[in-house]
Design a protein around this nucleic acid. Structure first.
Lengths: 243, 243
DNA sequence: TGAATAAAATGACATTTGTCAACTTTGCTT
DNA sequence: AAGCAAAGTTGACAAATGTCATTTTATTCA
């Protein structure tokens, strides 16, 4: 990322005028929508590039619309009063951000920040609400999505409450693996996070993450080189992360 | 509760043949449904009494249908491999249990146990799925409900990750207060839980709960007599529970 | 009502986790 | 490529929390 790119703010771009041929349609809540519904979305949407590190949603602030990720990586988190973050999940291609109520204006419950340069399609709330009401299959898709999110966060709660630190760190690595996958025969995680962000995901401190990773390295479970993490023994990691 | 009552299992009763006049309709996802929709539900539902301590849902087991609470109190929780529970929320009059997917059979992500004798209306999945598909306003109601649940569990995650034990216990008391309210000028919580269950709610141990409650008593924030808890200073408690 | 039993409170102690400081490595800038 | 700043590692220590044993207080049932 160059200094120049860092300074670009909400540059409006035209990714794909027609949502029905979008690369991220297949993994979106919109995938079961009718051609007419997608037509409506295509007409109402606007696309933006968010550079690495740029904020998309701010916890506590109302959002005027919803965001669909076209390409990129986004972390979704909450902060306590000392600004310590807890990363709740990662969003990827096709996922929706910023939808938090169908019938009332509401403060965003979470923050969202781009982890890579990310292309996003934006829809005004009033357009999206109308489209939802006109398209029952979209409401069902959203229901399914949020139901699954709820189950995931419930699992996360149990882990935060009952796991020890090595377990939490192992689980954080599994989450990174599940979210964006790995590359090559070394199983290099596609997501590179700082130790602080791994701690924010695991619910511990950066020092504890360092110590847990060192322990995993000794056991031959992972290999690290800076922010790059290779998973050498996925089963072992999974069993440490088991609850 | 008598020994006799304890042995009653799924005794079928007839609470109210017509859902449109149900006492719990106003606080249910069904409240915005059309008369025709409620007619369908009325025809398909069956009602049961679950006695205090009786299990309604078992984590990991598929459920054949969904449950609406007519009257009573229910705890919803997950367990780790040592059977330590984390209470995720309480369900009350009008709330739905056991709905976890619209289009596929799925294991229950949570367990549910009656905390008082509880009257429940049951709907087979196939009936409920049909009713959802026929009534878009119901899908929207469910979407709103699960969206709010998600926000609550996200908040809970942050607290579990970042709060100290007194904060977690204060938050647990606030949750008990918010779920079922209080009675009288002494502000006696309507929900009476064992110290173990308060610990399961707070994400700590029963001994730590005892110690935190003793601390709160010294500060004049609460008064306890066995399982009965009076909140003497709600603002103080709320500020301890703040994150 | 009064044993008997279960639950809660308390203190001592062990364990885990967080914090801080010093040092090492990495990666960026010139 | 060297130097600098930021990030990561490590160990010592402090603080918080969990565990266990004991005492005290509720609750149950005859």
């Amino acid at each position: 990322m160059t200094m120049v790119a860092n300074k670009i703010k909400k540059s409006h771009i035209n990714v794909n005028a027609d949502c029905s041929t979008c690369v991220s349609l297949g993994c979106s809540v919109l995938r079961n929508c009718s051609p007419e519904c997608l037509q409506e979305v295509s007409a109402a949407k606007r696309c933006f590039v968010y550079v690495k590190g740029q904020r998309i949603l701010m916890e506590g602030i109302e959002s005027d619309g919803v965001y669909f990720i076209n390409t990129g990586k986004v972390k979704i988190f909450k902060s306590d009063k000392d600004d310590k973050q807890l990363i709740l999940r990662f969003a990827k291609s096709g996922e929706i951000l910023g939808f938090c109520s169908i019938d009332e204006r509401k403060e965003q419950p979470v923050s969202a920040v781009a982890l890579d340069d990310t292309v996003i399609c934006y829809l005004d709330n009033k357009d999206f609400m109308r489209i939802i009401r006109d398209n029952p299959e979209l409401a069902l898709g959203l229901l399914k999505f949020y139901n699954e999110e709820l189950i995931e966060v419930e699992n996360k709660s149990l882990k935060l409450a009952r796991m020890n630190v090595p377990g939490k760190v192992a689980d954080a690595l599994m989450t990174m693996y599940d979210a964006y996958g790995s590359n090559g025969k070394n199983c290099t995680l596609n997501l590179m996070l700082s130790r602080q962000d791994i701690a924010n995901l695991a619910g511990t401190t950066k020092e504890q993450v360092s110590k847990a990773l060192s322990e995993f390295k000794l056991k031959g479970i992972v290999k690290t080189k800076g922010k790059q993490i290779d998973i050498l023994n996925l089963n072992s990691l999974r069993s440490i992360a088991e609850i």
